[in-house]
Design a protein around this nucleic acid. Structure first.
Length: 257
DNA sequence: AAGAAGAGCAACCGCCGATAC
DNA sequence: TGTATCGGCGGTTGCTCTTCT
């Protein structure tokens, strides 16, 4: 069903009190917006309505372009690799979806947010259904934490071996090599984090440990109400103690594009 | 076959920081 | 320096589609 049909069918696509259309975009609206960006580039979204005749406000235009019309968007399902990256970065940054999205070319913050939300709910439900297994989970979590402590020891060794003048990370699979070279760590701390993230996720989030990781994340959510304090723990193999909610400078340095 | 429930996703809202004036 | 505007972000809503009963 096209957006236009849906809009008509549902009475959606109404004109708001300020004269702006709302609701799903029609193909004609998309075409106008694409034409605008071709001619004027991205930005100055508030002038779209004036220059194209679109009855959409600037925010709506920007959102439509960023989340749906951008030519470099990657369509299709999130791959297992991407899921692992999301997991790791969420453990690190919390709900900073735009920061996470910058590490996943072609994916939008909205897409990642939706993905996390739906999978979070799914996993959380599974977790709540498995209360009877809690003792087993506790035991496994203890094992997991021991593994993370070992990871920290390993990390120190890795950092001592890293050549900080060279951003390329040796001995990584191609996908992780791409990540490493795109992110450009500047300091030993950043490079250490990046390295632990890239190397750690197979041990953390492979199929055998995946439920432990999710379980840890859900429990953190229960405790904190949100995941803003996640990385003060070793739950996801991360060990830099700055909290995501305050550590804006590091994230912007690491993920600046 | 029909209704209910859940999953997935597009889009809106409100807040906030950056920038212009 | 104060105010207005714009753009970006995270949270939330509401709709369709799919699966289950």
């Amino acid at each position: 069903m096209s957006c236009g049909v849906m809009a008509n069918h549902l009475g959606w696509g109404i004109i708001g009190s300020e004269g702006w259309r709302k609701g799903p975009w029609t193909t004609e609206e998309d075409r106008l917006l694409i034409e605008y960006v071709k001619l004027h580039g991205e930005g100055r979204w508030n002038s779209v309505a004036m220059l194209t005749g679109l009855k959409r406000n600037g925010k709506s235009c920007r959102l439509r372009w960023v989340n749906y019309l951008r030519p470099d968007l990657k369509k299709g399902q999130i791959s297992p690799h991407e899921e692992n990256i999301i997991l790791e970065l969420h453990a690190r940054w919390g709900n900073r979806w735009s920061t996470i999205a910058r590490s996943l070319p072609g994916r939008t913050d909205n897409e990642i947010k939706n993905y996390w939300r739906t999978h979070f709910k799914k996993k959380a439900k599974v977790s709540s259904n498995n209360n009877e297994k809690s003792r087993t989970h506790l035991l496994r979590r203890q094992q997991y934490q021991q593994q993370q402590q070992q990871n920290q020891v390993d990390m120190k060794k890795i950092m001592s071996l890293l050549d900080l003048s060279d951003n390329r990370v040796p001995s990584l699979p191609p996908m992780r090599q791409d990540m490493a070279t795109n992110i450009h760590p500047n300091t030993a701390e950043e490079q250490g984090f990046l390295y632990s993230m890239l190397n750690g996720y197979t041990s953390v989030a492979d199929s055998s440990n995946d439920d432990i990781l999710w379980d840890g994340l859900w429990n953190l959510d229960d405790v904190h109400g949100n995941l803003s304090g996640v990385c003060t723990t070793s739950k996801a193999g991360l060990h830099i103690s700055a909290t995501p909610s305050t550590d804006h400078s590091l994230s912007s340095k690491i993920f600046s594009s």
